[in-house]
Nucleic acid binder design. Structure first.
Length: 889
RNA sequence: GGGCCCGUGGUCUAGUGGUUAUGACGUCGCCCUCACACGGCGAAGGUCCCCGGUUCGAAUCCGGGCGGGCCCA
């Protein structure tokens, strides 16, 4: 079909040999998934490698090491998006950015999962074997999560990855332990732990479930005669563990008992009656016995009043020799025996049934017990920690008060030992002969004291040691991340410490943030970071926390699969830092629509540039108007990004791109681009390039894939992510207040005429004969004419406008009942009136003769429809500020 | 029980002492105009939770109440 081809060529080329807006080689639809997958494969990992020797200013981010569960959840995604926005922005702003990635591997959930998968119990498994299984499981999980992270385009320096379960990392944890021990900041002491008597293991708070049940509240008389008091308890079996009796200080009933020593029944010792405002006077008799330990309230009182420790219960749930004749019984047996004995002595006065919430082991549903064991502690210097915390800049500021109120209310030191397997070993041995505590020397590390031996004998000469079986709390690993990523301790880049930024969620302010501050000041006496930025949690579409039971969980992979990573990232950007964010598909869909819009703009731009760049241009009003707006956009986007206000950033970019640039500027210059003179067109083409190039770079941190794809269309080679961020100073030259006002006016004129067509029920492309404008500012009539597709005349003088009554509309609901059959004649009479009479009727009323009768017509019965006439032609008039527009259809 | 945050058109959301309160989605009209129908143009829709106070003026500040959320106990 040679004819067809020739015909096409003739149409496509204009006199300059360029094809304006035709033969677009680019896909009409922006296929996010295809584009994104292409760039994931194309991008080189070393794009984001960090160099300590770089002369650029350094920006180091102490990123959170997630727990490798195997799925990178949406909360992680939100947090990492924020981090990546910052990292990419700072990189483009000329910083050498370190965006490391760590994995906080140790912990109970993995142990539980491994037990489940392999059908084993860690208490029976070989320690070493069990640990290996945990490592393997964790490695697989990390790999899965890495994949999602790469797909989301996080600009991580993977060469700096750290994994806390590997010796390279946990050696650092052990060194930190040794150093703090040597400074006297770590010690051993008794501390309550929660155990499941059936599993015979320590369990964490998180592993406790609560069960409602009924139990007896027993009223028991302690002591005799004067020195007696009646207490109520649900745990009579713990009487041999009683260390005090407490009453409320406000309770007048016991005023004379306070300070008194009272004998504990069935034992041979006495305890003191003390006061505490936590005692509920309404419960039981208002007097309670404090035991070590019946529940967590007991632990609190025990610490607060510095009471004696009397442990009568062992790990296996049996009473020990301290319980006297009850030794060897389990809790239930002891309870019966003790109640029996109390009854015999006449001390059991009353029993009543009460409801009770019992903590049970999540696995076997056995009620848990609290016992005390020797644990390792980190000393907490609250004052120093608070001072340090206040030196860090908190974003948002109010998050600091969460830490403050937490620290101020802390009741005891940080217990760092755990009775588990998969964790960093505590590098300590105990001499079997003299009991000496031998802490590893730094150069022996890493060690596992359950396998390794100290490299020198004990002070007493013995070489027989018992290795510490307890391991460290996971927070001991993760609370040194800022130190670890800066090479501490042997290759420490202290010039980059404190690091620039810690991004994290508000759920772990009291743990991760607090412990990191504590450890940093303990180890190197410096704050860990200059700034901490707190992100919110992700809530489900129903506004509630995502949870399996509510069925409102959304996985990032699902979002990526449906709308792509950039859409997901835009959703993340719509959140306000520090606030919880609701996940909504609507937002993701809106984001992907914006991508399509952005792509269409780029496609349009490309079709008018075809790789050419216009260097010099004779800019017209509209061009200067949009460039001035662009300059202001650049300025505010920089400000928003500096404040980590990604929501404002994205909103500003979106509304400029969509509502200023695409809807208005492009519509105004289209005519110039398609059928203008070369210089007219080039001015627009210059703007087209400048705006596209700027917008691509502005949005690059948020939507890296879209930006890269568009960059390759507009700029060809290289990567937008290695380019520079638009700086406000570079754009200052475009700021032009006068052009902005004129541009706005032109926009208003075009919009006004469009609205007029709409009101008249005309199609928007309906022809307009003539538009006459009496402008208050300079306008570009060529562009206005082009945009309106009409002839435009700019008037230098305000023409005479005659207002005529076109029609008079009577209010029939008044006239009808009043004049009945005469109404028709009244209408006829009005129609016959002269212009002058009609005006009189509308303004002050008029008397008319109908059928020989004089009738007075009142003005409020009528409405006038007027029309305006200029030079004898009927026109529509628009008033835009001081500007008057006459439109002739 | 403690700490913190929040309460703005149907839904979600921005905002902050001062003229007609932002945007998105949804709804309702009109339009397949040569970048985009995942589009364009236009419209309707709000006691800015309630009550008091400060102020010339409060959605915005203060106090109280009600409701929701998160973290911790």
């Amino acid at each position: 079909m040679p004819c067809g081809i020739i015909k096409n060529v003739l149409i496509l080329f204009d006199q300059d040999g360029i094809m304006p807006g035709k033969a677009n080689s680019l896909e009409k639809e922006y296929k996010a998934k295809e584009v994104e997958e292409k760039w994931v494969k194309t991008w080189k990992e070393d794009m984001y490698f960090f160099d300590w020797n770089s002369k650029k200013p350094h920006f180091i981010i102490d990123t959170p090491p997630p727990y490798p569960t195997g799925s990178f959840h949406i909360g992680n995604a939100l947090n990492w998006c924020y981090i990546d926005f910052i990292a990419r922005y700072k990189r483009m702003k000329g910083y050498e950015v370190l965006f490391p990635q760590g994995w906080d591997c140790h912990g109970l959930p993995t142990e539980v999962k491994v037990e489940e998968i392999h059908g084993i119990k860690k208490s029976e498994a070989d320690r070493d074997e069990f640990r290996k299984l945990c490592i393997k499981f964790t490695e697989e999980n990390i790999e899965k999560m890495r994949k999602t992270m790469k797909r989301l385009a996080f600009s991580i320096d993977w060469s700096k990855e750290y994994i806390t379960m590997y010796p390279e990392y946990y050696t650092k944890t052990q060194i930190s332990f040794v150093r703090m021990y040597k400074k006297g900041l770590i010690y051993r002491g008794y501390h309550p732990v929660i155990v499941c008597p059936r599993c015979e293991t320590t369990i964490a708070l998180a592993e406790i479930e609560y069960k409602k049940g009924l139990t007896n509240l027993n009223y028991i008389r302690f002591g005799d005669g004067e020195n007696s008091i009646v207490i109520a308890t649900t745990r009579p079996e713990l009487i041999p563990a009683c260390v005090a009796i407490a009453v409320n200080p406000e309770d007048k009933r016991f005023k004379d008992k306070v300070g008194m020593k009272i004998k504990v029944p069935l034992t041979d010792y006495e305890v003191e009656v003390i006061e505490d405002e936590d005692v509920d006077p309404e419960y039981g008799t208002g007097a309670v016995m404090i035991c070590t330990f019946g529940d967590r309230q007991d632990v609190k009182w025990w610490k607060k009043h510095n009471l004696e420790l009397r442990i009568i219960l062992d790990r296996n749930g049996k009473l020990n020799e301290k319980a006297g004749k009850y030794a060897g019984m389990n809790v239930r047996e002891a309870r019966e025996a003790i109640l029996d004995d109390l009854a015999k002595e006449g001390r059991l006065l009353k029993q009543e049934t009460v409801e009770q919430n019992v903590g049970v082991c999540w696995r076997c549903k056995t009620p848990v017990e609290i016992i005390a064991e020797v644990q390792w502690f980190v000393k907490i210097d609250r004052k120093k920690a608070l001072e340090a915390a206040r030196k860090v800049k908190w974003i948002p500021e109010h998050m600091l008060s969460r830490l403050e109120s937490w620290v101020e209310g802390m009741e005891w030191d940080w217990v760092i030992s755990r009775q588990r397997i998969f964790a960093t070993p505590i590098p300590v041995w105990y001499c079997k002969k003299c009991g000496e505590v031998v802490v590893a020397e730094e150069e022996w590390l890493p060690v596992d004291p359950t396998k390794d031996k100290p490299k020198k004998p004990c002070k007493c000469g013995s070489e027989e040691f018992e290795g510490e079986k307890d391991v460290l709390d996971t927070w001991m690993d993760s609370s040194i991340t800022p130190l670890a990523i800066t090479g501490w301790p042997y290759d420490w880049k202290d010039f980059d410490y404190p690091v620039s930024l810690r991004p994290q969620g508000h759920d772990i302010i009291r743990t991760w943030a607090f412990y990191t501050i504590l450890r940093s000041i303990s180890l190197v006496n410096r704050i860990p970071w200059k700034e901490i930025v707190i992100n919110g949690m992700v809530l489900g579409e129903d506004g509630r926390k995502m949870s399996k039971s509510l069925g409102n969980i959304i996985q990032p992979d699902e979002v990526i699969e449906k709308y792509g990573a950039d859409a997901m990232r835009q959703w993340a950007a719509t959140g306000v830092i520090g606030s919880d964010v609701i996940f909504t598909w609507k937002e993701v869909i809106a984001a992907s629509r914006f991508q399509q819009k952005f792509w269409s703009v780029i496609r349009f731009t490309h079709s008018h540039l075809m790789g050419e760049r216009v260097e010099k241009a004779d800019l017209r009003i509209a061009d200067r108007w949009i460039l001035s707006k662009l300059a202001k956009l650049v300025k505010s986007v920089n400000e928003f990004m500096d404040k980590y206000r990604f929501d404002e950033t994205l909103k500003a970019i979106r509304s400029f791109t969509w509502y200023e640039y695409a809807d208005n500027y492009l519509e105004i210059v289209k005519n110039r681009l398609y059928s203008g003179e070369k210089h007219e067109r080039d001015a627009a083409r210059f703007v087209l390039y400048t705006v596209a190039d700027t917008l691509i770079r502005l949005i690059a941190p948020i939507t890296p894939f879209l930006a890269e794809e568009c960059w390759s269309v507009i700029n060809g080679n290289g990567s937008v992510h290695l380019s520079s961020y638009p700086e406000p100073e570079e754009y200052e030259k475009y700021i032009d207040e006068e052009a902005e006002k004129s541009g706005e006016l032109m926009k208003e004129i075009v919009a006004g005429v469009r609205r007029l067509k709409h009101e008249k029920g005309l199609a928007l492309n309906a022809p307009v004969k003539l538009v006459k404008i009496y402008p208050s500012l300079k306008i570009d009539e060529r562009d206005v004419a082009g945009a309106l597709n009409a002839k435009v005349e700019v008037l230098s003088e305000m023409p005479d406008v005659e207002v005529r009554i076109k029609e008079i509309k009577p209010d029939f609901s008044v006239l009808g009942p009043m004049f009945r059959d005469k109404v028709k004649e009244i209408i006829k009479a009005i129609e016959k009136m002269s212009e002058e009479e009609k005006w009189k009727l509308i303004r002050e009323g008029l008397k008319v003769e109908i059928g020989g009768e004089l009738i007075e017509l009142k003005p409020e019965w009528f409405k006038a429809v007027t029309e305006k006439v200029v030079s004898g032609k009927v026109v529509d008039v628009l008033e835009i500020g001081e500007t008057i527009v006459f439109v002739e259809f």
